[in-house]
Write a protein that binds this DNA or RNA. Structure first.
Lengths: 225, 225
DNA sequence: ACGCTAGGGTGTACGGCGTACACCTGTCAA
DNA sequence: TTGACAGGTGTACGCCGTACACCCTAGCGT
């Protein structure tokens, strides 16, 4: 009848379900139902919920292509943008990745090759170390935004007015780019632009430090004080 | 007997519990028990679990002092570091904050005053906008690290060797600062240094853009290409 | 040919969670 | 005196992850 379960089938079903209905829709029970099987059957192929999530993360991270060749900054930038694309395909992935307490070998491998880009580019291990911390989860393509871009849904105008009065700076900045369509809330941000802006800001700073032969021996990172 | 419950008492108990035993120890049931009350009693003071978490977040964010006066860069830097201290006092807070989908007025107020620092400093709303995105949740003092600094717990040496072979760049970088104590895994990172490094890298880049009268009108953020 | 083993699917059950809903009780205003 | 109402209670429902015992079948060595 039904071809047998397998770890790969379980993980693929879980990822598909999360892509379609969000990570909360992925429970052992719902997943089992989707596979036409009783919940406990899954446990013969993955150790438990945590292992399931780890496996899902591995699939997503595995989608990120290996680095190309070229100048370190361009190579790293390209790779981070590729990672971002994987995360956009699987919007649940950042949240799940952040919930893991220990990296899987797949994720470690990704980090390792990313560090390799820096070292191959001539950065000192010391600088590379700080750079990895400074990039943080952005290296994996996370937006790191606190809240999704303001909802396009219109709000009652009196609420909008009250909000504008209470938080004038927020609305001033939020509407700063709304020059073309004169909406109150603006057309939302260009997430891709914001992401690249942040990445380039960091990589640009790193490049300058590198060119200046910067080292962490009692020197403040950029010009300070 | 027992003085009556109140929203403030509930929230304070929840924060205390989370500080002591982690956010997972905060459930409606355990919280009720700690307050000497039946679970449903809590619902008379907070609308539900989500409202409880929002309230907890508000308490933490409310701990961050308002900005002082001075040059925008120093003021913002000081404030971000103050936010980080609040987050260090409540290690569960970043995770909870990231789980909220909509900012509370308290958080919006924090963001608003932070933006105010930039605008008062003469940055254009346009640049301020991008800066807020680039800082991301770092504005609230998050480390944004994917994983906590490598555990100080020693691992079996053969595992360590295998790991070093599989991920040479990771260990090269991880041990780069381990010059003083010659441990294999290094003494862990100086989280405070790494955090300030990242913040200063970003703020330094922003300052240069501002001085250069940078604008997003079809210009790549730092020097690119 | 036979029984054994082991891998994979099943069924039941437990303890936890958030919370809807009906209920009770004490306080205070009218 | 009465009645509304705020605040605490009790029960119950439907989810969750998963421990544990069970069963069925395929393939193996003898």
């Amino acid at each position: 009848m039904r071809e047998p379960l397998s770890r790969a089938r379980v993980l693929a079903a879980a990822v598909a379900r999360a892509d379609a209905d969000g990570i909360d829709a992925v429970s052992m029970r719902s997943l089992a139902q989707e596979l036409g099987v009783v919940p406990m059957a899954i446990y013969k192929h993955v150790a438990g919920k945590d292992a399931l999530l780890d496996g899902m993360v591995d699939l997503v991270v595995g989608e990120i292509p290996p680095p190309e060749r070229g100048r370190w900054r361009a190579v790293l930038r390209t790779r981070i943008l590729a990672a971002r694309e994987a995360m956009l395909r699987h919007p649940w992935a950042p949240q799940v990745l952040e919930s893991r307490t220990t990296p899987t070998p797949v994720v470690l491998g990704y980090l390792d090759s990313s560090i390799g880009i820096l070292l191959d580019g001539g950065l000192s291990p010391d600088l590379a170390h700080h750079v990895m911390h400074a990039l943080g989860s952005r290296i994996l393509g996370f937006s790191q935004e606190l809240y999704p871009t303001p909802p396009g849904v219109a709000m009652p105008p009196e609420v909008a007015a009250q909000l504008a009065a209470a938080f004038p700076n927020v609305v001033a900045v939020a509407t700063s780019r709304a020059h073309d369509p004169g909406s109150v809330v603006g057309p939302g941000c260009d997430d891709q632009f914001e992401f690249e802006f942040g990445v380039d800001l960091l990589l640009g700073g790193v490049e300058r430090l590198h060119r200046a032969r910067w080292t962490s021996e009692r020197t403040a990172p950029p010009a300070r004080r």
